[in-house]
Amino acid sequence: MNFHALLDFGPLQQEFGTIMKAFWGTIRLALVTGVGSMIFGTVLAAMRVSPTPVLRAAGALYVYIFRNTPLTLILLFCSLGLSDTLHLQISDEPGTNGFWLAAIGMTIYTASFVCESLRAGINTVPIGQAEAARSIGLTFSQSLRLVVLPQAFRAVVAPLGSVYIAMIKNTTIALAAGYFEASAQMKQMFDTYGGTIPIFVGFAVGFMVLTLPTGFFFGWLSKRLAVAR
């Protein structure tokens, strides 16, 4: 009988520095993916609502492909396909290279969800709003800038928050692409110390520290910005 091991938080203390470094890897990847997928997702959403059928079709095709492919497959494709087979080198340093490959894979995947949230946000704006804007003589850019987008962005905050929370949790899958972040560190500690409850709880709390405030922030923002309609 060795009850001591059940509640032994020792490993977490011993490796505190490494764990923090691993979580920093998670945060770094999440930040880069967040910015990248926001930019790329906005471009895709613009394509999907454009008056050009070709762009609309291309945007829709992209979303259909990448939203329905498992992230694990995309990340593996980035590391095994892009890097090892096609010899795509972003940096000579293997660590940096791995980081950017994971960030590319995460961005490709997340952008399709960002695009769908933004598009759905644009669709929440009643058509009467745009018609009213046109009827008082606003130009296209004015009606977009002053009437449609301000309302669309507000409707988008909450779904976008959900997308970003899922993205933070998805960074764990980057270990399939060989990127070292928190879940890889947890796996390593499981291999060394065994899968004890304290280690699991430690990492779970670590992730909750990242996801819960993100949720509260977006929730607060969306309530603050909500359009009374």
Binding site: A155, P159, G161, S162, G215, F216, F217, S222, A226
Partner: peptide, 15 residues
């Protein structure tokens, strides 16, 4: 239908 994440309250918009 996707429930909002923690903290998002009932602010899920009608999309």
């Amino acid at each position: 239908g996707l429930p909002p994440a923690v903290g998002m309250g009932s602010a899920a918009p009608t999309i």
